[in-house]
Amino acid sequence: MFNLAVDQEHVTLAFGLRWIETLSRRYEHIDVVTMTAGAYQLPANVRVWSVGREHGYSELRRALRFYGIVWHIMRERRIDVVFTHMIPIFAVLFWPVARLTGLRNVLWYAHGATPRTLRIAHRLVDRVVSPTPESFRLPSSKVTFIGHGVEGERFRAVARQPGPALRIITVGRTAPSKGLDVLIEALARWRHDGEWRLTVVGGGTSDSEAAYADDLRRLALGTPVAHRIVFTGRKSSEEVAAVLAGADVFVNLSETGSLDKAIVEAMASGCPVISSNDAFGSIARAGGFAQYVIARTPEAVRAALSELAEMSPAARQALADRQSEIAHRSHTLDGLMGRLCGVLDAEAKRGA
């Protein structure tokens, strides 16, 4: 298996450890070759090999280490299939080895962007898996869409108890692509008779995103509703689940193109979602709640929030139940791993 990071402290990639743990219960052994390794605890049948970005190694040195690690693993034990998770460059590097050995390579990709490295990797791998059509935008006969993988046991739907204020939440990286400035501007001019609170959960993964988070706090402080907006910073998956369980509406204004995992976690938790995300739009139109697919404008945000705020508790619960049912049916980790393993096993047989 190839991936970007094996690190339980990574802001966006820590969830990958749960993938590895789940896969380890289905296969005799797994060797993970990663770009960077941090702290982790994994089952005994999993070995982790880093090409050394955490040590500051140059690209050339990392490439040489990649080949050294791969050949060491293959001399030592039998490998049946290769899974490349969100690191197309490793798929490109592995191609000569695949040609020599006959090993089949399955690439997971989940982003709206289609960089040159992805286009090259797509030509060289045997199969592609992705959550939704919006998450893999190259025309391809190789791709299979298998849903997202949120932890269904953790993100369970719970009934909300009505409170004195509408509890709005957004979760994700504090990056410009997430549209948090639009959300704050929308709420600053929202003429709503009732009380409301906004909780912003998440942090930056780079210096530029950390600077953007500071800009957002300054933007909020400059509005007359600053006392209603709370920035919590990054939270663990367990903490996010608890916060979602106490929220009334989830807002996502992402323009990444692919389906944000945070959207699916909110849906699974029974927290009604409104979003401008393209992939959510496809789900909402098929699921009968297309009115909650909105434009990424302050006006559209205010209109959708007003509609949800004025809904009866029964109507809001019905919307929450519908969204949760879709998330648990098509986007849980166990279901995703079952579908992924079906693809991996089929490719292993073809390469045997």
Rank of each mutant, 00 (worst) to 15 (best):
A121Y: 01
R123P: 00
P176G: 00
R119P: 00
K178W: 10
V33P: 07
I73S: 01
A309P: 04
W95G: 02
E28F: 04
A241C: 11
L23N: 02
A315D: 15
P133D: 02
T297P: 07
F15N: 09
P298A: 08
P133L: 09
E255H: 07
H111E: 10
V158N: 09
E76Q: 14
R154E: 11
Q317M: 13
R61I: 07
T256R: 08
T132M: 15
V129R: 12
D345H: 14
T34P: 04
D334F: 01
A300C: 06
A327W: 11
V301S: 02
E153V: 05
G172R: 06
E195V: 05
W196A: 08
S237K: 07
T297M: 05
P131F: 06
Q161I: 08
R234P: 12
Y212C: 01
E76D: 13
F289S: 09
A14T: 11
A63F: 02
H227K: 14
R26H: 11
T22H: 10
A37R: 15
L107E: 04
V125M: 10
L13P: 05
A37C: 15
D278N: 13
T12M: 08
A44F: 13
I274H: 03
F145C: 07
L100D: 02
A290F: 09
V129K: 09
R316K: 15
I263V: 09
T101D: 10
D345R: 15
S269H: 11
T332N: 12
H122I: 01
L244T: 05
R296A: 13
D7T: 03
V293N: 06
K261L: 12
Y212D: 01
S236D: 01
K349P: 00
G102V: 05
S140R: 01
E134R: 14
G38V: 12
K349A: 14
R123C: 01
A44E: 15
G179A: 00
H72Y: 07
S58P: 11
P176Y: 00
N3K: 02
A242D: 13
H148W: 03
V301F: 00
E238F: 13
V92N: 10
H328M: 09
S276M: 08
R99D: 01
F145H: 14
G172F: 09
P176E: 00
V92R: 08
P139D: 14
L221K: 14
A268W: 13
M267N: 11
P115H: 06
S306V: 00
R75H: 10
A213C: 01
A213K: 10
F94E: 06
F94M: 03
R302G: 00
P43Q: 07
V293P: 03
L103W: 02
G102P: 04
T232K: 08
L166M: 09
R228F: 11
L60K: 14
G338D: 15
V6R: 13
A286R: 14
R104K: 15
V158L: 12
V97G: 05
V128R: 02
E310I: 01
E299V: 13
